[in-house]
Amino acid sequence: MSSSARPRAPWFLVVLALLALALLIAPLVALLTRAPWGSFAEILTSPVARDALRLSVITATAATALATVLGVPLAWLIARSGLPGTGVARSLVLVPLLIPPVVSGVALLAAFGRRGALGQFLYDHFGFQLPFTTAGVVLAEAFVAMPFLVIAVEGGFRSLNSQFEEAAATLGASSWTTFRRVTLPLVAPALGAGMVLCWARALGEFGATITFAGNFPGVTQTMPLAVYQALESDPSVAIALSLMLIAICVVVLIALRGRIIRPLATA
Protein backbone atom coordinates (compact mmCIF):
# COMPACT_ATOMS: atom_id res chain seq x y z
CA MET A 1 0.00 0.00 0.00
CA SER A 2 2.60 2.49 1.09
CA SER A 3 4.85 1.71 -1.88
CA SER A 4 2.02 2.23 -4.37
CA ALA A 5 1.14 5.53 -2.74
CA ARG A 6 4.67 6.80 -3.23
CA PRO A 7 5.28 8.02 -6.81
CA ARG A 8 8.17 6.31 -8.59
CA ALA A 9 11.23 8.48 -9.05
CA PRO A 10 11.58 9.53 -12.72
CA TRP A 11 14.51 7.51 -14.06
CA PHE A 12 16.26 10.49 -15.64
CA LEU A 13 16.30 12.32 -12.30
CA VAL A 14 17.98 9.29 -10.75
CA VAL A 15 20.49 9.13 -13.59
CA LEU A 16 21.34 12.84 -13.31
CA ALA A 17 21.61 12.56 -9.55
CA LEU A 18 24.01 9.63 -9.83
CA LEU A 19 26.04 11.57 -12.41
CA ALA A 20 26.24 14.50 -10.02
CA LEU A 21 27.42 12.20 -7.25
CA ALA A 22 30.01 10.64 -9.56
CA LEU A 23 31.23 14.08 -10.60
CA LEU A 24 31.78 15.01 -6.97
CA ILE A 25 33.32 11.73 -5.82
CA ALA A 26 35.25 10.40 -8.84
CA PRO A 27 38.13 12.92 -8.70
CA LEU A 28 38.70 12.17 -5.03
CA VAL A 29 38.72 8.43 -5.68
CA ALA A 30 41.11 8.98 -8.60
CA LEU A 31 43.39 10.85 -6.22
CA LEU A 32 43.44 7.80 -3.95
CA THR A 33 44.55 5.57 -6.82
CA ARG A 34 47.47 7.90 -7.53
CA ALA A 35 48.57 8.18 -3.91
CA PRO A 36 52.21 7.32 -3.19
CA TRP A 37 51.27 4.95 -0.36
CA GLY A 38 54.83 3.65 -0.01
CA SER A 39 56.35 7.03 0.80
CA PHE A 40 53.28 8.55 2.41
CA ALA A 41 54.61 8.74 5.97
CA GLU A 42 57.93 10.06 4.75
CA ILE A 43 56.27 12.85 2.74
CA LEU A 44 53.91 13.90 5.52
CA THR A 45 56.71 14.09 8.08
CA SER A 46 59.01 16.08 5.79
CA PRO A 47 59.86 19.59 7.05
CA VAL A 48 57.92 21.25 4.22
CA ALA A 49 54.74 19.29 4.94
CA ARG A 50 55.02 19.72 8.73
CA ASP A 51 55.63 23.47 8.43
CA ALA A 52 52.73 23.88 6.02
CA LEU A 53 50.35 21.79 8.12
CA ARG A 54 51.30 23.57 11.35
CA LEU A 55 50.95 26.98 9.69
CA SER A 56 47.61 26.02 8.12
CA VAL A 57 46.11 24.87 11.41
CA ILE A 58 47.38 27.94 13.29
CA THR A 59 46.26 30.48 10.70
CA ALA A 60 42.87 28.83 10.06
CA THR A 61 42.22 28.77 13.81
CA ALA A 62 43.32 32.39 14.25
CA ALA A 63 41.24 33.45 11.26
CA THR A 64 38.21 31.65 12.73
CA ALA A 65 38.75 33.38 16.07
CA LEU A 66 38.98 36.77 14.34
CA ALA A 67 35.92 35.99 12.23
CA THR A 68 33.99 34.94 15.36
CA VAL A 69 34.85 38.03 17.39
CA LEU A 70 33.89 40.34 14.53
CA GLY A 71 31.38 38.17 12.68
CA VAL A 72 28.97 37.33 15.51
CA PRO A 73 28.23 41.02 16.26
CA LEU A 74 27.85 41.63 12.53
CA ALA A 75 25.42 38.72 12.21
CA TRP A 76 23.47 40.07 15.19
CA LEU A 77 23.42 43.53 13.62
CA ILE A 78 22.03 42.17 10.37
CA ALA A 79 19.48 39.83 11.91
CA ARG A 80 18.27 41.59 15.03
CA SER A 81 19.24 45.21 15.30
CA GLY A 82 16.47 46.53 13.08
CA LEU A 83 18.77 49.32 12.00
CA PRO A 84 18.30 50.72 8.48
CA GLY A 85 20.62 49.38 5.80
CA THR A 86 21.02 45.88 7.25
CA GLY A 87 19.73 44.37 3.99
CA VAL A 88 22.54 46.09 2.13
CA ALA A 89 25.03 44.93 4.78
CA ARG A 90 23.86 41.37 4.31
CA SER A 91 24.45 41.58 0.56
CA LEU A 92 27.90 43.10 1.09
CA VAL A 93 28.86 40.22 3.39
CA LEU A 94 28.24 37.86 0.49
CA VAL A 95 30.66 39.65 -1.84
CA PRO A 96 33.90 38.03 -0.59
CA LEU A 97 32.09 34.71 -0.85
CA LEU A 98 31.37 35.19 -4.53
CA ILE A 99 34.39 36.99 -5.97
CA PRO A 100 37.41 34.94 -7.04
CA PRO A 101 39.89 34.64 -4.14
CA VAL A 102 42.70 36.08 -6.26
CA VAL A 103 40.58 39.22 -6.64
CA SER A 104 40.24 39.28 -2.86
CA GLY A 105 44.04 39.18 -2.71
CA VAL A 106 44.37 42.12 -5.08
CA ALA A 107 41.78 44.05 -3.05
CA LEU A 108 43.62 43.28 0.19
CA LEU A 109 46.85 44.55 -1.36
CA ALA A 110 45.07 47.75 -2.36
CA ALA A 111 43.92 48.23 1.22
CA PHE A 112 46.61 46.69 3.42
CA GLY A 113 49.67 46.48 1.15
CA ARG A 114 52.69 48.65 1.84
CA ARG A 115 51.38 51.09 -0.77
CA GLY A 116 47.75 50.44 0.16
CA ALA A 117 45.26 52.93 1.60
CA LEU A 118 45.52 51.64 5.19
CA GLY A 119 48.72 49.66 4.75
CA GLN A 120 50.79 52.74 3.98
CA PHE A 121 49.62 54.37 7.22
CA LEU A 122 50.59 51.24 9.19
CA TYR A 123 53.95 51.06 7.45
CA ASP A 124 54.82 54.75 7.80
CA HIS A 125 53.82 55.03 11.47
CA PHE A 126 54.61 51.63 12.88
CA GLY A 127 56.96 50.11 10.30
CA PHE A 128 54.52 47.25 10.15
CA GLN A 129 53.73 45.39 6.96
CA LEU A 130 51.06 42.72 6.56
CA PRO A 131 52.08 41.11 3.24
CA PHE A 132 54.61 38.28 3.64
CA THR A 133 53.70 37.82 7.31
CA THR A 134 51.69 35.12 9.05
CA ALA A 135 49.33 37.89 10.20
CA GLY A 136 48.77 38.66 6.53
CA VAL A 137 47.74 35.02 5.94
CA VAL A 138 45.28 35.23 8.84
CA LEU A 139 43.79 38.44 7.43
CA ALA A 140 43.43 36.93 3.94
CA GLU A 141 41.79 33.80 5.35
CA ALA A 142 39.45 35.80 7.59
CA PHE A 143 38.45 37.99 4.66
CA VAL A 144 37.50 35.00 2.54
CA ALA A 145 36.03 32.77 5.28
CA MET A 146 34.16 35.15 7.59
CA PRO A 147 31.05 35.34 5.34
CA PHE A 148 30.41 31.62 5.99
CA LEU A 149 30.30 32.30 9.72
CA VAL A 150 28.22 35.46 9.43
CA ILE A 151 25.60 33.81 7.23
CA ALA A 152 25.30 30.74 9.48
CA VAL A 153 25.06 32.76 12.69
CA GLU A 154 22.69 35.27 11.12
CA GLY A 155 20.36 32.36 10.30
CA GLY A 156 20.56 31.33 13.97
CA PHE A 157 19.71 34.82 15.21
CA ARG A 158 16.85 35.13 12.77
CA SER A 159 15.14 31.89 13.80
CA LEU A 160 15.47 32.72 17.47
CA ASN A 161 12.34 32.92 19.58
CA SER A 162 12.55 36.42 21.06
CA GLN A 163 10.29 35.48 24.02
CA PHE A 164 13.32 34.21 25.96
CA GLU A 165 15.11 37.51 25.55
CA GLU A 166 12.00 39.44 26.49
CA ALA A 167 11.60 37.28 29.60
CA ALA A 168 15.21 37.95 30.59
CA ALA A 169 14.74 41.67 30.08
CA THR A 170 11.53 41.58 32.13
CA LEU A 171 13.46 39.88 34.94
CA GLY A 172 15.86 42.81 34.99
CA ALA A 173 18.79 41.55 32.93
CA SER A 174 20.74 44.23 31.09
CA SER A 175 20.82 44.00 27.32
CA TRP A 176 24.47 42.82 27.39
CA THR A 177 23.67 40.16 30.00
CA THR A 178 20.68 39.05 27.95
CA PHE A 179 22.86 38.77 24.84
CA ARG A 180 25.59 36.90 26.69
CA ARG A 181 23.45 34.57 28.86
CA VAL A 182 20.37 34.00 26.72
CA THR A 183 20.85 34.91 23.06
CA LEU A 184 24.34 33.47 22.50
CA PRO A 185 23.60 30.03 24.05
CA LEU A 186 20.51 29.81 21.88
CA VAL A 187 22.51 30.38 18.68
CA ALA A 188 25.36 28.11 19.81
CA PRO A 189 24.56 25.35 17.27
CA ALA A 190 24.48 27.84 14.40
CA LEU A 191 27.66 29.44 15.71
CA GLY A 192 29.36 26.04 15.90
CA ALA A 193 28.35 25.22 12.34
CA GLY A 194 29.52 28.63 11.15
CA MET A 195 32.87 28.24 12.87
CA VAL A 196 33.42 24.83 11.33
CA LEU A 197 32.57 26.08 7.82
CA CYS A 198 34.75 29.15 8.37
CA TRP A 199 37.67 27.05 9.61
CA ALA A 200 37.42 24.61 6.70
CA ARG A 201 37.25 27.44 4.17
CA ALA A 202 40.23 29.18 5.82
CA LEU A 203 42.21 25.93 5.79
CA GLY A 204 41.68 25.61 2.04
CA GLU A 205 42.34 29.25 1.16
CA PHE A 206 44.79 29.65 -1.72
CA GLY A 207 44.22 32.56 -4.09
CA ALA A 208 43.96 35.46 -1.66
CA THR A 209 46.83 34.08 0.42
CA ILE A 210 49.37 33.69 -2.38
CA THR A 211 48.39 37.06 -3.88
CA PHE A 212 48.41 39.04 -0.65
CA ALA A 213 50.78 37.19 1.65
CA GLY A 214 53.18 35.52 -0.79
CA ASN A 215 54.71 32.09 -0.45
CA PHE A 216 57.46 31.29 2.05
CA PRO A 217 57.82 27.99 3.95
CA GLY A 218 57.01 28.31 7.64
CA VAL A 219 55.79 31.92 7.34
CA THR A 220 53.10 32.15 4.68
CA GLN A 221 53.19 28.79 2.87
CA THR A 222 50.00 27.05 3.96
CA MET A 223 49.00 23.54 2.83
CA PRO A 224 47.23 24.60 -0.38
CA LEU A 225 50.26 26.67 -1.42
CA ALA A 226 52.55 23.74 -0.64
CA VAL A 227 50.30 21.50 -2.75
CA TYR A 228 50.43 23.91 -5.68
CA GLN A 229 54.19 24.28 -5.43
CA ALA A 230 54.78 20.54 -5.07
CA LEU A 231 52.66 19.91 -8.17
CA GLU A 232 55.34 21.69 -10.20
CA SER A 233 58.23 19.59 -8.98
CA ASP A 234 56.91 16.37 -7.48
CA PRO A 235 53.24 15.52 -8.13
CA SER A 236 53.29 12.56 -5.72
CA VAL A 237 54.07 14.95 -2.86
CA ALA A 238 51.20 17.17 -4.01
CA ILE A 239 48.84 14.18 -3.98
CA ALA A 240 49.95 13.10 -0.52
CA LEU A 241 49.44 16.61 0.87
CA SER A 242 46.06 16.85 -0.88
CA LEU A 243 44.89 13.60 0.70
CA MET A 244 46.01 14.95 4.06
CA LEU A 245 43.81 18.04 3.56
CA ILE A 246 40.86 15.92 2.44
CA ALA A 247 41.32 13.64 5.44
CA ILE A 248 41.27 16.62 7.81
CA CYS A 249 38.01 17.86 6.26
CA VAL A 250 36.40 14.42 6.42
CA VAL A 251 37.46 13.93 10.05
CA VAL A 252 36.03 17.33 10.98
CA LEU A 253 32.75 16.55 9.22
CA ILE A 254 32.42 13.14 10.85
CA ALA A 255 33.39 14.42 14.31
CA LEU A 256 30.77 17.14 14.18
CA ARG A 257 28.04 15.24 12.38
CA GLY A 258 24.76 15.42 14.20
CA ARG A 259 26.06 17.76 16.85
CA ILE A 260 26.68 20.87 14.84
CA ILE A 261 26.04 20.35 11.17
CA ARG A 262 22.53 18.97 11.61
CA PRO A 263 21.15 21.87 13.68
CA LEU A 264 22.32 24.11 10.84
CA ALA A 265 20.07 22.24 8.45
CA THR A 266 17.08 22.62 10.75
CA ALA A 267 17.89 26.17 11.81
Binding site: G113, Q129, G214, N215
Partner: peptide, 21 residues
Protein backbone atom coordinates in the same frame (compact mmCIF):
# COMPACT_ATOMS: atom_id res chain seq x y z
CA UNK B 1 66.37 35.39 3.03
CA UNK B 2 63.60 36.31 0.60
CA UNK B 3 60.16 37.12 2.01
CA UNK B 4 58.39 35.23 -0.73
CA UNK B 5 59.15 32.47 -3.23
CA UNK B 6 56.91 33.05 -6.23
CA UNK B 7 55.91 30.33 -8.66
CA UNK B 8 56.94 32.18 -11.81
CA UNK B 9 59.05 35.19 -12.68
CA UNK B 10 56.10 37.41 -13.59
CA UNK B 11 54.69 36.94 -10.09
CA UNK B 12 58.01 38.24 -8.71
CA UNK B 13 57.77 41.22 -11.03
CA UNK B 14 54.17 41.84 -9.93
CA UNK B 15 55.25 42.02 -6.27
CA UNK B 16 57.95 44.56 -7.26
CA UNK B 17 55.56 46.67 -9.35
CA UNK B 18 53.05 46.69 -6.48
CA UNK B 19 55.82 48.11 -4.28
CA UNK B 20 55.37 45.31 -1.74
CA UNK B 21 59.02 44.25 -1.92
Amino acid sequence: RPVTLELDVRAVLAKVMAGEV
